[in-house]
Design a protein around this nucleic acid. Structure first.
Lengths: 246, 246
DNA sequence: GCCATTTATTGGTCTGACAATATCGTTTGA
DNA sequence: TCAAACGATATTGTCAGACCAATAAATGGC
């Protein structure tokens, strides 16, 4: 048989687990499987797909790490469908930030780029529920001035309440991601003196008032000022160079 | 033995694969394993960890789907370390968008919220290389007006070139994510008539000039106008309701 | 020295088994 | 009658071992 110079291009051989994962992923994302509905058992999947249980399990691990399924052991256990949440984005951004050694400086810049627009949308789209969540977080912030951990948590909650009030799901995901990471970076106790806390609470009040009033321009401007001021203080103290430790 | 009312809380039993994945993940993210460096073979990992090869493989599948390793078959194959990229974020955002049925309307809103700030940072931080990439994409955009696929690709490339010029990695990740998704949603041929294409090219020219000149305020303003105008056109045509099909 | 062939190493897959866990059904006792 | 205890059962979790497939390294002939 005379051999032609090139018969086929470099061909990829997909792994069995990847093929099955891809198949199930499409079915889940297409909505063919409703949230919470159970997948067949591992053995059934194996029989139907013609793969071994080991390969089926590898496929399920992939989908699980993508946040598309959840598995429970025991009778009536098995994999059930989950739709991805903002937390899935936050997790992947978290890996990105740690793996690439993103500087705190960059994250503050990211927040300064995004959050004013988020506040603007929050002023336009907030509901009564959103307002209640904002007020609750702000109240906890005020109450927790003594307790460092509770303070930081309430602070993140307030910022996420603003994000939620925007009713823009991708933005909620992005803000969840960077707020969580920035907060975990704020381990330096210098970074929240009583003075800073007072300023933060006052700034929140002003922003919140604008959101309540539906004043989108005001909310955007005040949020821009708030996150810029906060960033400036961190940049002064952390000398801009600090890296987020693993 | 007298039984106290509660001895232990509901305790979670971590899976072997999760524990191993967690361990390796920490080592990778902490930088103990440099990019490209090989992990031990599956069999070695099994011996050292005391787990079976099946469990080791499940752990590796998890890390692989997180973008932290890559595996190759054959002699001298095996898993090697990868640091996550913007694409990892894009993938997880893609799942989020499809799974949660995010409307095109929301994605346009997200872009309108983020990209002006990205353009502002690009004007502040662009390098000569960034400028060259911008010009190249814009040239391809002009040249490809006849070829629909090439046009859309060049368009995304230009927007990503702007994002890259910001030199803010999280923003690059976010923009990669939403640009890709929005482009794939732009299947409706109505959405890029010759007129729209002309307007797009002209807008890019203006934005690019501002970025070149280091005019951050101008770049931000012009980008805001561009993405808003583009969004308005899509909203008109798509009647705001369209969902990104799986 | 170069090229074809063989060999070794490594991931990819399968099979079958047993352990751990959670639910269901039944029995038993008050 | 009801509820608590207990055993049966379904399902994931884990393991051990084998063989296949792909790839790179070692070998040998010219």
């Amino acid at each position: 048989m005379p051999d032609s110079p090139i018969l086929v291009k470099r061909l990829v051989v997909p792994k069995a687990a990847d093929v099955l994962a891809e198949h199930l992923r499409e079915r889940i994302l297409a909505g063919a499987l409703a949230e919470g509905s159970p997948l067949p058992t591992e053995r059934e999947l194996g029989v139907h797909s013609g793969l071994s249980r080991a390969s089926v399990r590898e496929a399920l691990r992939i989908l699980e790490s993508e946040g598309l399924i959840q598995t429970r052991p025991g009778r009536n256990g098995g994999a059930s469908v989950r739709q991805p949440t903002a937390d899935s984005i936050a997790r992947s951004v978290g890996l990105f930030v740690r793996g690439r050694r993103i500087r705190l400086k960059s994250l503050l810049e990211t927040r300064e780029a995004i959050e004013p627009a988020v506040a603007r949308l929050a002023a336009l789209h907030r509901t009564d529920q959103d307002v209640a969540a904002l007020k609750s977080a702000q109240a906890r912030l005020k109450a927790a001035q003594a307790d460092r951990a509770a303070y930081l948590e309430a602070n993140v909650d307030w910022h996420l309440a603003v994000a939620n009030a925007s009713h823009n799901e991708p933005l909620i995901g992005f803000m969840t991601a960077i707020s969580t990471v920035i907060q975990s970076a704020t381990e330096n106790p210098q970074l929240d003196s009583d003075e800073v806390r007072g300023q933060t609470i006052a700034a929140h009040e002003r922003i919140q008032a604008a959101i309540l009033a539906g004043d989108s321009a005001g909310a955007e401007r005040r949020m821009a000022r708030h996150v810029r001021a906060y960033g400036d203080q961190m940049r002064d103290l952390a000398s801009g160079d600090s890296e987020l430790t693993g």
